[in-house]
Each structure stands twice: as structure tokens, then as C-alpha cells.
Design a protein around this nucleic acid. Sequence first.
DNA 1: CAGTATCCTCGAGGATACTG
DNA 2: CAGTATCCTCGAGGATACTG
Lengths: 239, 239
Amino acid sequence: MDCPSGRWQAPPVPGYGQYCPIAKASEVLGERWTLLILRDLMTGAHRFNDLYRGLPGISRSLLSERLRRLEHDGLIERRDANGSPAGYWLTPLGADLQPALMAMGEWAARNYGRDPRRDELDPSVLLLWIERNANRDGFPPGRLVVRFDLHGSRPNRAWLVSEDRVPSVCWDDPGFDVDLTIGCDLRTLHKVFAGRVALSAAMRDRSLVVEGSEAQRRAFMHWFGYSPMANATRAALAG
Amino acid sequence: MDCPSGRWQAPPVPGYGQYCPIAKASEVLGERWTLLILRDLMTGAHRFNDLYRGLPGISRSLLSERLRRLEHDGLIERRDANGSPAGYWLTPLGADLQPALMAMGEWAARNYGRDPRRDELDPSVLLLWIERNANRDGFPPGRLVVRFDLHGSRPNRAWLVSEDRVPSVCWDDPGFDVDLTIGCDLRTLHKVFAGRVALSAAMRDRSLVVEGSEAQRRAFMHWFGYSPMANATRAALAG
DNA sequence: CAGTATCCTCGAGGATACTG
DNA sequence: CAGTATCCTCGAGGATACTG
């Protein structure tokens, strides 16, 4: 609970004055952006700029403020420089929130699931999510270079480069030979990510076209990163 | 989704522009008071003034605004006059939130459980919760009158009157003969309500004193209303 | 890279008074 | 009982420029 300045006072977020767990949870989690920050920490973002990139519309000062409050409330801790991996990490208290966060997300996935309009999707955020949720064990050792051709989006090309099973997305040609290309429009990619359409079905009807060696295409189906809520969505659609 | 005025426009609560279930849930549930309103609807409050009484600090206009938004978002519906029980009721969409709300509350109960200071407790809210969570089947038919003597609180006397198994709390002497009195301080009553202390233990060490016939005292242990999160709290304390 | 400091705006929501 | 209308305040947070 120690803070950067050493003695940061929590600005008096107006509590509810109710000694009730729901009220307490609302006080800790209820501010704008807080739940999304926790979501991103749970899916592998830890550096300030990683978090910033995944939250279009937040300002750097507001992100900083929210992180300080979460640290003050004991949900996250900052690991600096010498303490191995730098950045922000969930404490046990913060990690314990995962079931509740999943339950909220599953509620929304069950009930608000519909296909997004193209203008509701942000290509850079979707690719970031695919990177973060990728199954690292499914990548080959060494380097793998995948190019996404997103029909009708701007920008419309992204590269996912996996080095020693650690993927990262970039929007400028990294210059390496491409092992695999994925061609589809952004909505199809989102539908697959969200679990609204099976990857195999999208490949079959060629709304998503994968080009590469047979082995690479098979591996793709194994490492592709789905939304953590995809299973709930599939269940809702099946039920 | 129809609204009082017939064409109420949702003020543009700034969304996150992320097509993600957690973001969607945050948009619908993230505003101040919203989760507490849903909590109260789940525990039996339905009339405007019932909700208002259970949310000290909210203004009538803000409660009205929040209810309109929840109605607009499809989580609650207003049943007026001729459609039997008047007031606000959860729709299936709203009721489907219960597991998520419980998960959040249980997280807080597990992690933030501690004994409240006396100034953190509001007697009228605690008695309201006990009324709402009472086990109606445990009341006798006809009338039961219970007086709570809350040592050191102001006001320090409340009556719970059950008529045909429907309890209601009042703070002025209703004038009926008293069948049962409960004497304790507010913190003890809260500890019992929250599941932090067993009712039987509080009676045994006389921090909570019940006076009445043997039958009434036994019935009391059956109808007394616990917090919906009490079981989670007991589990956390036992584990 | 990872923030902080300062200044300024605008909109959420309180207070008050009112209504069917 | 169940709200609504109006006016006003103040504080959350954006913009901008800065730092170790």
C-alpha cells in the first residue's frame, strides 16, 4: 500500500457510508476505467504504455491516477526496476476479483451479444487483444511472422511477430519473410475472436482466408487468441 | 424500453468504444448508485420511496435519473397502477445479473471484512435490511411485534411489526403489545446480520439479549434476516 | 519510457421549489 | 405518494507542456 510519493492521500472518493459488500465493491471498482484496467492486467498488460495503448480515450494523467488508487486500495502493486518484471501486477486481492469480473463479462456476453458495426471496432485494439490472448505454447520456437490483411479497415495491414513464443503486433512492415497471411474483414475477425463464429467455419466459408503451409495453418488454429469470454458466448449461442 | 415521457433520450454516457463485454457491463452498471439500486431491487425494494430510503445520500432526482436509465437499458421495468404490483421490477436481463452481483459482493465480503466502527453504521438502514431479508415463512400468522433496543444508538428503539408474515420496521411506538424484545448494540446486530458472529453465540454471551416466550425466541432464530452475503462471510472466516 | 504539474472547462448532480 | 423543473456549484478530468 505504499505509494510513489510515499504519502499519497486518497482523494475522498465519496463512499456510500453503507457497511455492505456491494457498496464497498462499488467504491473500489466503480470509477470509470477501473474495471477495464483490471481486465487488461488480467490478460497480460503490465507496463504503463501497454495499458495506455489498450484504453483508447483515457488520458495519461487519468490512467496514472487510477493506478495509484488501485495501488492504494491494495488491488495492484508496482514492481520497479530491480524487482524483476517491472510494471503493475495484481496482488492476491486483485487476482481474487477474476471470478466476479468474468461473471460480469459473461452476463454482458450472454445478453448483449450482437455483431458490431464496423465503426464500433478499432483494429489496433482488436489485434492487441489477439496478441494478449494468444496461446503461447502454440507458437513454434524461433520466429513466426503472420500478416493480417484487414479488408476495408484503416490501417489494413498488421504483422504479428512471435519470437521464441512471445507475440507482438506491429503496424509497419517489420521486413521479415511472412510465414502466414490471414485475410478477412474486421468484423469477421472480431466474430471469431469473440466466439460468435467458429474459426473453422469462417475458414470453410472463406470469410477468413489463411494462406501458408499446411503445418502453419494447423498451428494457427492452435495459437489464435480468443476472448476470455468466448466460451460464455458460445454457450449462450448454443443454448 | 418505453419511458415515462415516451421518448426519453439516453444522455450520452460516454462509452468506451470497445466492443468488449466488460466494457459493455461497465457502461451499463458503472455509474454511481446503479449497483446499489439493483442490489435493493434484488432484496425486495420496489417502490420509489423504498429505494430512496435505502440509499441515504442520493437525491430524488438522481434516483429518478438512474431508474430511467436502467429502464432504458432494459434491466428494470416500471409496472404502473393497473399492472398489479406497482413500482420497479427487474426484467429477466436484470435478474440475470444476480450471480455477477453476488460474486462482487462475495469478493468484498471475503477481503474487506472487518468490524465496522459504530459511526459507520446507520441504524435505519440496518433495520431496513433486516426487514427485507427476513424469512417470511418464519413469522407466525397474524401479528407479531418485536422491539429492538439498540444500546447507544440514536434513535435507539425500533419496532418490527409483522402482519400476516409481512414485516415492516418503524421508529415510533406503534402502540401494540410487544411479543419479543431484542437488546444489543448496533455493532453486534450488524455482526450477526453480516454473518461475522453466529446469532446463537451472540445470545449465549449475552451481547444480544432476547426476551420473550420460549416459542417466540425460537421463532426469532428462524425469521431473522441475514445479509445475502452472510454465507460467503462465514465461509471466509471458517476457511 | 513513464509519468507529473498546471490550468481550465463543462457537465454531473445537489438544493430548492414545484406538480399530478 | 412519486416524482419533475430550474438553477447553480464544484470537482473530475482533458489539454498542454514539462521532467527524471
